[in-house]
Design a binder for these strands. Sequence first.
DNA 1: CTGCCGGGAGTAACCACATTCTAAG
DNA 2: GCCTTAGAATGTGGTTACTCCCGGC
Length: 373
Amino acid sequence: MLKEESTGAGGGGNNWARVCDTCHAAACTVYCRADSAYLCAGCDARVHAANRVASRHERVWVCEACERAPAALLCKADAASLCTTCDAEIHSANPLARRHQRVPILPISGCLYGPQEGPADGDTEDRFMTQEGEETISEEEEDEAASWLLLNPVKNNNNNQNNNGFLFGGEVDEYLDLVDYNSCAENQYPDQYNQQRYSGPPKSYGGDSVVPIQYGEGKDHQQQQQQQYHHFQLGLEYEPSKSAYSYNGSISQSVSMSSMDVGVVPESSMSEMSISHQRPPKETIDLFSSTPIQVPSQLSPMDREARVLRYREKKKTRKFEKTIRYASRKAYAETRPRIKGRFAKRTDAEVEVDQMFSSSLVAETGYGIVPSF
DNA sequence: CTGCCGGGAGTAACCACATTCTAAG
DNA sequence: GCCTTAGAATGTGGTTACTCCCGGC
């Protein structure tokens, strides 16, 4: 499904991975500055292992998102090498992504690869390439990507764990759906949102200290944000009349709970989210019946490709690790007494000890400092 | 082939409370 | 507009209970 469209939409060109300049078959994985050439793993190993001079050629990984440009930044959170364009695009998607720490990629030299054993399955799969260099997408990925392109009519099914085994609105969509909301919230309350959560030093009362944030540094950050808002607004011009900004309740809960990285939700789902609360009983749901589902065919090929690409990238880089937003709360939670894992009430003695510690600390420092990590 | 059982994996819920947010005065 | 106050909301981690899946019989 996607293969045909991805090949057909690009006007005959391959919009995904750049092919190796040497073998013209496999997807390139590194860019050699000295040779100004994009090379696949095999050709890189072969070319740069040929002699000592060649082995000293500085190469950089190709962007893992577009796979078409040399990576310029390494996102530590995603463990992904990204070109400047993709970096800007991905990390402007939402406030959480913006917090990812990125460092300039250092050139690599020497032999990058061990003995060539042919492309590993995982790598092949990861890059959606076959050994012949053709794009392939597994059925599972097709399904997931399709869930991107479709909407997720059962995404608000939080209270119903059992989706009848049908995960159409399950993990993937939950994961994917948040960014636009984040962007919406950010767009709606840009100043408040950012001032409260993402800027400024921790307050002196020693309360919640937000986990350190790495920005693009200095004044660029503000400029960056403004640019991001601008980009977002451009994106929203698609459906300006939708009440997509006024979500609350379970949606905002999802946002706060989902500290993992998030992806981009198809525009169509934004409008659907507002009616999802009124969805009929489960047994009457028919995804492809009379409900006003925006089918993929309504998307332009370019939109489709863009979404699939974003989906791929986010799937590749997503992490399910919990992100601690408030280190002080973590500290409190860790020191809090528990009974069978549940927080337990502190005894009077413990409270007294705490008060003694806190009062002595205040006397010494003038501040009630909460340990933070 | 079907049904039952046990083990493993995954996940929601629960708890207390300091901190933050919001609205009202 | 600014300050204060009260109440609601939020977030935090370890354990438990529950569901689901899979393999063996």
